[in-house]
Design a protein around this nucleic acid. Sequence first.
DNA 1: AATACTGTTCGCGA
DNA 2: CTCGCGAACAGTAT
Length: 263
Amino acid sequence: MPELPEVETIKKYLEKLILNKKIVVIEVFNKNSLRGEKKLILGKKIKSLKRKGKLLVIELNNDYSIIIHLKMSGQLIYSNKRENLKYLRIVFKLNKGYLFLNDLRKFAWIKIIKKDELKKEMDKIGVDIFDLSFKKFQKLFKKSKQNIKSFLMNQKKISGIGNIYASEILFLAKINPLKKTNDLKDSEIKKLFFAIKKIIKKAIKYEGSSSRLYLKPNQQKGSYQEHFLVYQRENENCYQCQSKIKRIKINNRSTFYCPNCQK
DNA sequence: AATACTGTTCGCGA
DNA sequence: CTCGCGAACAGTAT
């Protein structure tokens, strides 16, 4: 489900809802959804929330942190009462309120890890878009022969962009998604950099895209899907030139672009 | 009814 | 090393 804008939205909401609360009980309904010993964090207080790329981190007032990846369909829901969610995998009962992991496809995971392992875990993925300078961005380009869409989605280079925003960004930058990364001109790299910043910022403003399953912690939808430039707009008219938006597969993922604007 | 598709990532074999 | 593909899983759309 979530790419950077969705995870950032979840983080912002949860900061208002769970900070300084204590984890009183943890119930696990799907064993694979929680990794690590829950005893290590029972009775501990939530001190801060962090995010890198699509990873969310909850830091506690002891030596442990909780690290969360929502994968395709994970939702983090907060409520003052116990909710009956259809795909409930984990419940964190707090001293006031509940935090739920609801996850249709069961790919999402929550790991309990020691704080000294946290850095190591975070270093596995590339620079977050919030920390991406043009200099850093340029350097990453050096010799990737991948197509540019796969490059943008490769979390080891830059972290945070997934399938929806990759198409949106490339449309804004007027770059064909199949273009080889090492074939991009300097001017295109510059356009791409600004398109990344712009689309991600806009998506955060609209609190993410709920084209399917994504929900904010209050169970409401984000609204970026009402502003899609190309994503899920196959055969509809391009807003720039009125050509029909095309859909192709890149690495088996749907990719939307305007064949006229993105040559 | 069968098949395609879905916001992610990992591991395997080429 | 990089790549493309299947798997992890469960639902909806066509």
